[in-house]
Amino acid sequence: MSEVTPARAGRRVGAEVTVSMDGYSSTGSEDDMSWAMDHISSGQSEIYYEGIWRGVGTAVLGRTNWVGFTSVWPAITNDPSSSARTRDLGNWLATVEKVVFSTTLTQEDLEKSEWTNARVSADVESEVAALRNRPGRDILVLNSASIIRTLLRADLIDDLYLTVVPSTLGSGRRVLPDDYASKWQLASATAFPSSGAVALHYQRPGE
């Protein structure tokens, strides 16, 4: 997952999110992702994202993404018309260690899903700090703006993967906090001609 030598010991924490040109990752509680689907559904996006998730041993997500992902991904994974990369991603999502941050979901709720190896937690900072000190492959936050904001403020994100889609939303959920100041270095930039999106991988400067 990392092109630059880690500056800090332990597992690296990455955050992957798709944003609009004006910095929103979603339109709110009733999220309509049609603005990003040209990119998300493209073969170029599959190849790029595979380069991230295959190095990850723990996935982190919030309640909204857990509910949304588990409602659609099992069918996509089992659909014979899905690409091999899509099915691989679906199988990874179903089996990789997952930590779901929520104050309303219970462990019993998670166990109703076809996905396995998931547990609920409420304390984002303490949980991720503990995860990064455990042995294993890297940790990835899956498109959850509120979790990313919390971890940025706590200085717990090492790799920030921002895919900028050529759309503006005007309002919604922002990924970067308004009161957050920081410095990053560009590790890589990838253009997607078919969708017009650009993926920017930033890392914290070496200490």
Results as ranks from 00 to 15, higher is better:
residue 72 V to D: 04
residue 72 V to L: 09
residue 72 V to W: 14
residue 72 V to K: 09
residue 73 W to S: 09
residue 73 W to K: 11
residue 73 W to P: 06
residue 73 W to I: 11
residue 73 W to T: 11
residue 74 P to L: 00
residue 74 P to H: 00
residue 74 P to Y: 00
residue 75 A to Q: 11
residue 75 A to C: 04
residue 75 A to N: 07
residue 75 A to T: 10
residue 75 A to R: 10
residue 76 I to M: 13
residue 76 I to N: 09
residue 76 I to Q: 10
residue 77 T to P: 07
residue 78 N to Y: 03
residue 78 N to K: 13
residue 78 N to I: 03
residue 78 N to W: 02
residue 78 N to H: 10
residue 79 D to F: 01
residue 80 P to S: 03
residue 80 P to H: 03
residue 80 P to K: 02
residue 80 P to W: 02
residue 80 P to E: 02
residue 81 S to E: 13
residue 81 S to M: 08
residue 82 S to P: 03
residue 82 S to M: 04
residue 82 S to I: 04
residue 83 S to E: 01
residue 83 S to T: 07
residue 83 S to F: 02
residue 83 S to Y: 02
residue 83 S to W: 02
residue 84 A to Q: 13
residue 84 A to H: 10
residue 84 A to C: 04
residue 84 A to F: 07
residue 84 A to D: 15
residue 84 A to M: 09
residue 85 R to L: 15
residue 85 R to A: 13
residue 85 R to Q: 14
residue 85 R to H: 08
residue 85 R to G: 09
residue 86 T to V: 15
residue 86 T to L: 12
residue 86 T to C: 10
residue 87 R to P: 07
residue 87 R to Y: 09
residue 87 R to T: 11
residue 87 R to L: 08
residue 88 D to P: 03
residue 89 L to M: 12
residue 89 L to V: 04
residue 89 L to E: 07
residue 89 L to S: 06
residue 89 L to R: 11
residue 90 G to D: 05
residue 90 G to P: 04
residue 91 N to Q: 12
residue 91 N to R: 15
residue 91 N to D: 10
residue 91 N to T: 11
residue 92 W to G: 08
residue 93 L to W: 12
residue 93 L to P: 08
residue 93 L to I: 12
residue 93 L to R: 09
residue 93 L to Q: 11
residue 94 A to P: 02
residue 94 A to H: 03
residue 94 A to Y: 02
residue 94 A to I: 02
residue 95 T to S: 13
residue 95 T to F: 06
residue 95 T to Q: 13
residue 95 T to L: 08
residue 96 V to D: 05
residue 96 V to I: 13
residue 96 V to M: 08
residue 96 V to G: 05
residue 96 V to Y: 04
residue 96 V to H: 06
residue 97 E to Y: 03
residue 97 E to S: 12
residue 97 E to G: 06
residue 97 E to N: 13
residue 98 K to Q: 07
residue 98 K to R: 14
residue 98 K to G: 07
residue 99 V to H: 01
residue 99 V to Y: 01
residue 99 V to S: 01
residue 100 V to S: 13
residue 100 V to K: 12
residue 100 V to D: 11
residue 100 V to M: 11
residue 101 F to R: 06
residue 102 S to M: 00
residue 102 S to G: 00
residue 102 S to N: 01
residue 102 S to Q: 00
residue 102 S to P: 00
residue 103 T to N: 15
residue 103 T to K: 15
residue 103 T to H: 15
residue 103 T to D: 14
residue 104 T to H: 14
residue 104 T to V: 14
residue 104 T to F: 07
residue 104 T to G: 12
residue 104 T to L: 10
residue 105 L to H: 05
residue 106 T to Y: 01
residue 107 Q to S: 10
residue 107 Q to T: 06
residue 107 Q to E: 14
residue 107 Q to H: 09
residue 108 E to Q: 14
residue 108 E to S: 14
residue 109 D to K: 07
residue 110 L to T: 01
residue 110 L to H: 02
residue 110 L to Q: 01
